[in-house]
Design a protein around this nucleic acid. Structure first.
Lengths: 199, 199
DNA sequence: GTCTATAAACCGATAGAC
DNA sequence: GTCTATCGGTTTATAGAC
């Protein structure tokens, strides 16, 4: 009857994997959260790893065709990255765990990571030629920066949790723009000032 | 007879946890790696979480009393941070997993993290007043930077693994100095040039 | 201190009724 | 499609011999 049983399973699995990781969640847990029996879940996904594989497939949306070319577009992209990482933290935070399940999963992670890096590289290339960011001080400077950016996007949330007893409330956008500020041209700084003043 | 059974257990546990994480290692695995029976291990640590708690205690050495004040000392500190993270990756990489075991473990992590951050803050304060790094462009600029530095120190190794199919060999020291370069004064750049030329 | 043996619970996967 | 029942294996933790 319910054609959406499969979707209910995937949604329940995503939420549980996000919170407890692949090993921390049993097939029984997923069935209970989806409101179905374990036998029924097995009917849809015969093996546990089939669940996470289907989850990866449904969550691997292609990146937008054009990389950001303005400060505002880059700011939006940071927000989107942050949302994606939090909504699919099973994928980003537990990637060491996932890659040990199967080789296919590791390659999916690796492919997604390289696509994101290429996207960011194109973005900063455009932003430089549009006069928002200054030229490189040395060859590969922006590549270093992009590596650091990606790590902050992925690991900021758990890092934030680790320092939660610190009084000052951390914020991803402030963090990442704080590390980028020195690279902005006067034109870039003016536009960023406008954006940050709005919220 | 053997007074070092406890140490053998901790060492075996550290290595296995580093490789497979807390959930990925059973008490039987640890006993086998330590060359003793499971019952004997239970005699020394009645519960599995007691093992990781004892491991945390034995690995939580206090930081050196004085923070780095020269470029060379900072470079050495980066190398040491990297070594510590790799030797105790069970602690750094699986902290989300560990903090769900017990509240005590989470607080140990949080305390260690804050101690490291304070150490880095003192270091960059000294390095600025010694004329190796430029003053802040805005209040909190170096705090942002230190957050990013810490994340790179912790997550660089698994990140490196994720991009292993990329041709260029990544390197933590180059990565971190690449992100710091623009903050160095001429004096700082001269000293860094000397250090990097040596190896 | 170290061991073997085992209890009690949970795991993923399967079989078969409806 | 959905369910209950169960198999074979593994887990942590305990009991007791030496």
């Amino acid at each position: 009857m319910r054609r959406d049983t499969r979707q209910a399973i995937l949604q329940a699995a995503r939420e549980l994997f996000n919170r407890h990781g692949y090993d921390g969640v049993s097939v029984r847990d997923i069935a209970r959260a989806a409101g179905i029996s374990k036998g029924n879940l097995t009917y849809h996904f015969s093996r546990k790893e089939d669940i996470v594989a289907a989850l990866l497939e449904s969550d691997s949306a292609p990146l937008p065709p054009a990389a950001p070319g303005t400060i505002r577009e880059l700011d939006t992209m940071f927000t989107d990255m942050q949302k994606t990482v939090e909504a699919q933290s099973y994928f980003f935070l537990h990637h060491a765990q996932l890659s040990q399940i199967s080789e296919t999963i590791f390659h999916t992670q690796s492919r997604r990571y390289r696509a994101m890096l290429a996207h960011l590289q194109e973005a900063f290339c455009r932003l430089r030629s549009n006069g928002f960011f200054r030229p490189e001080l040395f060859s590969g400077e922006y590549d270093r920066l992009i590596n650091g950016l990606y790590m902050q996007a992925v690991y900021w949330a758990p890092f934030e949790r680790l320092q939660k007893s610190v009084s000052r409330r951390p914020d991803f956008r402030r963090q990442v723009w704080g590390t980028l500020y020195h690279l902005l041209t006067d034109k870039g700084r003016a536009e960023l000032g406008q954006i940050l003043a709005l919220d």
